[in-house]
Write a protein that binds this DNA or RNA. Structure first.
Length: 321
DNA sequence: AGCCAGGCTAAGA
DNA sequence: TCTTAGCATGGC
């Protein structure tokens, strides 16, 4: 079976702060958990092999049908976006599970990415079910890189090109279900290092568990309506609602405005003017970056995060004045 | 040691 | 409606 796909860079995709459950085992070699399955993703010489879960789950999770070249073509043609697009070549937005994404980002507020990963790991070990290994495998062999279209061969695990992958024997855990979190105590969550976010996560889980919040209704809503709905959850403001809508619901018009993106926009598009309000930045972003604003955001975010000497808080205080 | 982190909430102007 | 302290915890 063959499917059309565009470029895919595992490092940029899995280490750009959209997912927190992937561990890098080596160069271009990652292990993670998707739903109830252990997954392994490997990239060598441009060839990508995805294993675990089922073929359908892998294709959906990695959004293999998305046309990355078209996304990048839609970006505004300015020097900043050209640089970001060149640096982030192959970065693909994932399609993750809504509750896991929402909960993870409730844990994310005012935390560094390293710490978010630790918190999520604690939650999974503490409250998540042990997961199974499954045997689906997708092997992606590019005809030409980068950015040319290539075909994607889906094979069974036995016929996968790079030899068998032995999963470590250590037990993995799924992300805890809504009810598992809802049944927990605040103290238990604080034990997972959530700090003041513990009460938010607990209350959010209980709202969803009791059906006072229906996540399955979100996909049928207009973007602004969906934001309005999600922000009814405790600990969920506009930024976290945008993250969930972008990384789980596939709403590519969502533009999460975090401190890094805010600094970057000020610096790159407003000459560092400190009195441009957040609201104005949000308006600018939505009108300027086009239909794939969410993609543009992720590219800019990853680009500036990997150039902290230019875009970090301290240098901004000096350079951006 | 001190500043900052993929923010949100509630209180006060 | 806009601004700001407070909130836990830990990396650098």
């Amino acid at each position: 079976m063959e499917i059309a796909a565009d470029d895919l860079h595992l490092g940029h995709t899995l280490e750009s702060g959209q997912a927190f459950r992937w561990a890098r085992l080596g160069e271009g070699d990652y292990e993670g958990v998707i739903g109830g399955s252990v997954a392994r993703a490997t990239q060598r010489n441009g060839m990508v092999v995805l294993r675990g879960a089922s073929e359908a789950v892998l294709r959906r999770y990695f959004q293999l049908d998305a046309d990355l070249a078209a996304v990048v073509r839609s970006f505004p043609d300015d020097p900043n976006m050209r640089q970001a697009a060149a640096f982030c070549r192959g970065l693909r937005l994932l399609r993750q599970e809504p509750w896991e994404t929402l909960a993870s980002f409730i844990c994310s507020s005012s935390k560094q990415i390293v710490q978010i990963r630790q918190i999520v790991a604690h939650l999974c070990r503490e409250l998540g079910e042990p997961v199974q290994k499954e045997s689906a495998c997708i092997s992606i062999t590019p005809k030409r890189l980068p950015f040319e279209r290539y075909t994607c061969n889906v094979q069974t695990a036995e016929h996968a090109t790079p030899g068998p992958v032995a999963f470590e024997s250590e037990v993995r855990h799924a992300f805890p279900s809504v009810s598992a979190v809802a049944r927990a105590t605040e103290a238990r969550l604080r034990g997972c290092k959530l700090g003041f976010r513990a009460k938010y996560l607990l209350a959010a889980a209980r709202m969803i568990e009791s059906d006072r919040m229906r996540l399955d209704a979100i996909s049928g809503m207009e973007y602004l309506r969906a934001v309005e709905e999600l922000t009814k959850l405790p600990g969920v403001g506009p930024k976290i609602a945008d993250c969930a809508l972008l990384f789980a619901w596939g709403r590519q018009e969502a533009f999460p405005m975090d401190v890094w993106i805010e600094r970057a926009l000020r610096r790159l598009y407003f000459r560092g003017q400190p009195r441009v309000t957040r609201r104005e930045l949000v308006e600018f972003a939505r009108s300027y970056f086009g239909p794939y604003a969410g993609y543009a955001q992720q590219y800019l975010f990853h680009y500036v995060r990997r150039h902290p000497h230019v875009f970090g808080a301290r240098s901004f205080a000096v350079l951006g004045r």
